Simulated scan of single mutants.
Amino acid sequence: MNSSKKGVILVSFGSVAQSYKMPDFLKKKFLEAFAQFPDITFLWKYEKDEDNIAHGYDNVITGNWLPQTDLLAHPKMLAFISHGGANSIMEASYAGVPLLCIPLMADQYRNAQMAQYRKIATIVKKPEILEGKLTEAIKKIVDDD
């Protein structure tokens, strides 16, 4: 956390929607977006270390388990990219960390809308990731006080 130049962004989609099951073309879009921010460290909860998904991306660190609550409380935490689950929204809100929500199912759509309405989140819909909206949303969250 402390070695990051500009700060850290946590990436986690909870325990049900596991990142390693994401289609390869989507993983690539995430990594391409992260590469646009070399001064920011991205901590990505990625469940299969053997995939070596972040190889060649110096600003991306993966782990199959991350201490989410502790990380969100760190002063260098810039944002949380999440599915918008209730626990993630509550933990980020409590820590005062802005959210970039990518809702995937169930209550996550409503949770993300509620957080956006309260100006603590930006929403990117899954199809918009392919259109480059992820990079735009990260820039907005990092640059907009």
Rank of each mutant, 00 (worst) to 15 (best):
S19E: 03
L72N: 07
L66H: 01
I123R: 08
T122K: 15
K21L: 14
M105D: 12
I40A: 04
A137H: 06
K27D: 06
D49L: 09
A106S: 10
L66V: 14
Q68Y: 11
H83Q: 15
D70A: 14
N111E: 07
N52Y: 02
F42P: 09
N59I: 04
K126S: 09
H55Q: 12
F80S: 01
M105L: 10
A112P: 08
I123N: 07
S88Y: 08
F25S: 11
P127W: 08
S15Y: 00
L104M: 15
M90G: 00
I141W: 04
K6A: 14
I129K: 05
K29W: 05
V11F: 11
S3Y: 03
G132M: 10
M22G: 00
K126A: 12
A86N: 09
V60E: 04
A73C: 03
G85M: 06
E91K: 11
Y109F: 15
Y109C: 06
L26Q: 11
G56E: 04
I120N: 11
L26S: 03
N2Y: 01
E131F: 00
Q18G: 00
P103F: 05
A137G: 08
Y94W: 11
E136M: 10
L31Y: 05
P23F: 06
Q18V: 15
I81E: 09
M1V: 04
M22N: 09
Q18N: 11
G132F: 12
F34L: 08
M77H: 01
A79S: 12
I123M: 09
G84P: 09
K48H: 06
Y57Q: 01
S82H: 12
K133W: 01
T62L: 01
I141T: 13
D143T: 07
S19F: 12
P23I: 06
A73F: 00
L43C: 02
R118C: 12
D107E: 14
L71P: 03
I81S: 08
L43R: 04
K45W: 00
A95W: 03
L134S: 07
K140F: 11
M22E: 09
S93F: 06
F30V: 13
I138W: 09
E128N: 11
H74M: 01
H55R: 12
K29I: 01
L66F: 07
F30C: 09
Q18I: 14
L78H: 00
M105K: 09
Y57P: 02
D145T: 02
K45T: 00
K45N: 08
E47L: 07
M1R: 00
V124C: 13
L130R: 13
D144R: 02
E131L: 14
I123V: 15
K29P: 03
N64Y: 04
H83Y: 07
A121H: 10
Y109G: 08
N111A: 12
Y94K: 13
H74F: 01
F25Y: 14
L104Q: 14
Y94D: 10
S12G: 13
I81W: 10
Y94N: 09
S19L: 03
I138V: 13
F13K: 04
Y117D: 15
Y57E: 04
S12L: 03
V8E: 06
K48Q: 10
T41D: 15
I40K: 00
T41N: 13
I120V: 15
N87Q: 14
D143P: 00
D70Q: 13
G96V: 07
Y20N: 14
D39V: 03
Y117V: 10
Q116M: 15
I129H: 06
M1F: 04
A86H: 11
A79H: 07
V60I: 06
